[in-house]
Amino acid sequence: MGNLNKEQIEKLAAHLESAELEAHDVTKITDDYPEMTYEDAFDIQWEIRRRKEERGNRIVGMKMGLTSWAKMSQMGVEQPCYGFLADYFSVPEGGEIKRDELIHPKIEAELAFVTKAPLKGPGVHIGDVLRATDFVLPAVEVIDSRYRDFKFDLKSVIADNSSSSRFITGGRMADVADLDLKSLGVVMEVNGEVVEVGAGAAVLGHPAASVAMLANMLGERGEELPAGSFIMIGAITAAVQMNKGDSFCVRYQDLGTISGKFV
């Protein structure tokens, strides 16, 4: 059940989307709307999505956020969340990310699933996800909360499209049958130095569990993941702050590398 009316939802969506487009931070919205519910938070996110589509942007994928226990406790939230990826979030492999278009970007090493069959919750499990997966490939997400100092609660971050801002995908695609996704290792290097390491199990115990959770969360709104969906599973490593001039390279076990630069 929502506690906010349509006008308030639209106002908050415009407020958060302007912060994203103009690259300035705002205070978390639950400060002014403590009565806001999770349904309201998702309504705001979906309104931001509608605004972008109306403007001619395409939605090119979905992402999960706050999928590691470490991250949930770091951010003081109790469960993961999802967001959408718009066309202009995509940065080519080896490309440049314009620091000034963002507020306080951080990068995270992730994996992406591309599906070949629809997934609709409730009741989607890892087996369903693996059967519906066409292939997996490496992905790096640039998160950029619109909230001051990355301080938020779960409702505020959901409304803010789960801090989505940019992403890069690349490296080598692989069939899920050829990988042990749980122990698949990643090594993140920034400016040539190893800064973070991790393995797939950091994401909800198994990367495919994240896609299953997304399908189940979308199912609650009557939505589904159609065949051909591109889904980023959430961070395998801690998020690392990036400044202008920083470059990064993330190495994936058996799946190659992704690199990029902040300019």
Binding site: V186, G200, A201, R251
Partner: peptide, 8 residues
């Protein structure tokens, strides 16, 4: 690949 192999 001993540098990228993951550990859980």
């Amino acid at each position: 690949d001993l540098a990228t192999c993951g550990m859980v």
